[in-house]
Design a protein around this nucleic acid. Sequence first.
DNA 1: GTCTATAAGTCGATAGAC
DNA 2: GTCTATCGACTTATAGAC
Lengths: 188, 188
Amino acid sequence: MLSKRQEISNCAARLFRKKGYKATSMRDIAEAMNMKAASLYNHISSKEELFSELLLKMATLFTIGMEEIAQSSLSTADKLERLIALHVKLTVEHTDAISLISGEWVHLPESSAAEYLKHRDSYEKEFRTIIDQGKKEGIYKDIDTDIILFSLLSTLRGLYSWYSKNKDYNSIELERQMINCLTHGINK
Amino acid sequence: MLSKRQEISNCAARLFRKKGYKATSMRDIAEAMNMKAASLYNHISSKEELFSELLLKMATLFTIGMEEIAQSSLSTADKLERLIALHVKLTVEHTDAISLISGEWVHLPESSAAEYLKHRDSYEKEFRTIIDQGKKEGIYKDIDTDIILFSLLSTLRGLYSWYSKNKDYNSIELERQMINCLTHGINK
DNA sequence: GTCTATAAGTCGATAGAC
DNA sequence: GTCTATCGACTTATAGAC
């Protein structure tokens, strides 16, 4: 049983994704919840807080997942596979909220934006370290690290869009296909 | 010498990209143009028109480029390379406007949205045909065509973001790296 | 905890002087 | 073609009855 607060959050994520944060009004969220806009404020304190919470939760999940992988004793190739699997898992479990990461984060209030970007930058930095390590070990092609990183992240961050139209796709098979599709592009 | 109308359009594209369409006010655009908001209406007829024009222009450029490639007698592999080159070229020449394609298009008014999606769907359909042809010829791996398509398009559509931070990167070299990075993922 | 009513501000767009 | 002034609609959020 979800708390009403959590129901509102899920509902908002769905609308933010569909219409964008700025174009989604508190009245829209209230209508989808069968309430009046004013009643929402008994459960949340502001629209910005609702939005920041969604994005910072996702950023934290990525940070935790990345730390586990980066600090493990897995091989470099296995680390990359686990990273792809992490994106697949979070996409399946938080499809709406994860969609906000690509573009909607610009609407974060200044206070949250700083914390969000800290998560994001450190995630990308650790991702880059893994790619560089693979190149050093000679298992990856000599393509500009930043181009590899941007290419992988673009695809992984856009996965929510593909997954939404293919929710019946077996999620283990999806993980396998993504790993296959993304890693063979850089393997020697 | 740009017409004032074109200056406003470029200015709006930059702001739409930075702050999002809904969060960019006519007053914001006017300020960046050193005018008052009311004066903008001597050159454009509405904010929606300004936005629709930007997105439909990009959609048309992609459609024209795709038609030339699809109807050519190039090999399948060369067609894909030309397609990647088309994205690189349009990204370099229209960095701000192209950024709106990924997420901001949802703010198109209903009238323009239909036309925009017609362009987009037909573009993706022809892209899919090229990938399928390559698989039939045995030059591409047996990965789900839709996954290949989504993976390529995610990266190509996100290129504006990478390019913005690397504007000094030689654009011929960028094209070569993108082709290398994207095609080796699916080549047998 | 939900409602009605409303405050206080911003939005796109127009009217009309110059 | 630019300006000031303003309209009417919409926004987030609050006050206070029930």
